[in-house]
Amino acid sequence: MTFTRRAFVSTLAIATALSAAGIAAAQDKPLIAIITPSHDNPFFKAEADGAAKRAVELGYDTLILVHDDDPNKQSQVIDTAIARGAKAIIIDNAGADASVAPVKRAKDAGVPSFLIDREISESGIAVAQIVSNNYQGAQLGAEKFVELMGEAGNYVELLGKESDTNAGVRSSGYHDIIDQYPDLKMVAQQSANWSQTEAYAKMETILQANPDIKGVISGNDTMAMGAWAALEAAGRTDVIVVGFDGSNDVRDSILKGGIKATVLQPAYNQAQIAVEQADQFLKTGSTGLDEKQLMDCVLIDESNAAKLETFALAD
């Protein structure tokens, strides 16, 4: 169902408003558009799945679209959602500044937007912005890192892609905590662009120049996996590695005693909450809540990793 809709929509991405309106009229259930970055990243797939499941439960039809973190493509798929007569848009946006205009266009067309995961740089345009508290999550990860490091020693930071706001937010959150410990010394700080292979290569090089490192704090889990693989290959499994995202790969590594910790962003639940607020708004004209809402992240370590599955923590 999801796949056929997506394929269908992409072939009609530049359909005229007229024919699109005809399709919308043929549907008997109200439509909710769910827009995220590429589902190749399981995090975004979890968002789309969570939102779609809740939307169907609440009696909506769904239109699943992806923007691949490309603002131009995002602009197109938002237009598609408007043209298809979506009653609401659930979106993990493609850039804090670039997303303001298309979200406003949807608003002006009478389609309210409910943002998940990331903020946009203006308020008053979306009905809700349910933001993953990356800063708080990074602080949690850093607190655990500091504890594991015994408040002292040389460490390395792997940064995410510079163009992504969250790379900076997480790094600031890490340093907010770590820099308060004068005996923790950062000997290298490099971007591996969220990439596992790049993190592997960077880690190999860093390790040659700094064989005395005790820990690696990484902006996300894929880079943590790459760094861990390089450390394993070099026989340095004594090095403490902490990631961010709460992926199943890192969960498995934690359970095997490899990577020590990560931070879960509750992507699945967050997407469901956004759909619930959209439903409330469509039925009553208000979510009853502030526009911007922060959702806290959760530290994952050996004590709770077993309860983690696809970006959701079992009770």
Partner: peptide, 27 residues
Amino acid sequence: PVIRGTAIRDAMPFVVFTDFRDQIEFA
């Protein structure tokens, strides 16, 4: 001096996230 968490901020009814620029400022 390192105190974990956001208990005081989050307990204050007059503090509303929408009034702040972004999660960094809020943190």
